[in-house]
Design a protein around this nucleic acid. Structure first.
Lengths: 105, 105
DNA sequence: CTACTTTTGGACTGAAGTTGTCCAAAATAT
DNA sequence: ATATTTTGGACAACTTCAGTCCAAAAGTAG
């Protein structure tokens, strides 16, 4: 798994590897070229539909891109905090606690 | 550390332990009573200033409440995702990567 | 150099979300 | 029954975000 690569970098690299331009990919996905450019530069968020479509286009696992995107969002939201690592640890405990309780509803 | 307690529950419990009403605490913090009630119910976000002030009021570590709040936000944002745990793992790697690179700027 | 294509980013609009405030109903306590 | 506390709806002001359009900048090729 490509650890440090952002969602935008990931899909840009995929596009380059496939020798496509922004315009071409945007046309396939039926979105604005400028929009795609911004997503690649992490200046706009990809929608769920976008992730689904582009995964499909490049035949790559949708979960992989979903994780790339959501982890970007989470990381970015606490990047400047000294307590970031602690925050993640506690967040994980809360999620586990939530899922545990959801199980025996 | 109180794992599963949300930020709101945490400060509500602190208030009850200290035998104070919403109105009283709100007055100390110079905020609207209704606002405080909503924060305790996790229906509104605490501001940084709010966290600072209420930590001060109850003489508890500000970092503890900050972590409680931020972990709530992070957990809530990915709670419904199957991939939540994976997301947190990758987010942590991204944060470490970011901090590593910040070190040797 | 010129013509063409791609990439980048500013500007804008409407939609969606957030904050803080006020008020009144509901719940609780005296 | 009266007081107080708690809850939550409604609202305006404000911020944020998505998506679109356009033009300048950067890159490519003749």
């Amino acid at each position: 798994m490509q650890l440090e690569k952002s969602f935008g970098e990931t899909i840009r690299d995929l596009r380059i590897e496939n020798h496509l331009t922004l315009r071409e990919v945007a046309e396939h996905l039926k979105i604005d070229t400028s929009m795609l450019g911004k997503i690649e530069k992490n200046n706009r968020n990809p929608s769920k539909q976008f992730i689904k479509d582009i995964s499909n286009l490049f035949s790559i696992d949708e979960d992989l891109l979903t994780v790339a995107h959501l982890s970007d969002t989470v990381a970015y939201s606490i990047l400047e905090e000294e307590l970031a690592t602690e925050v993640l640890k506690v967040a994980e405990e809360k999620i586990n606690y939530y899922n545990k309780n959801k199980a025996n509803k």
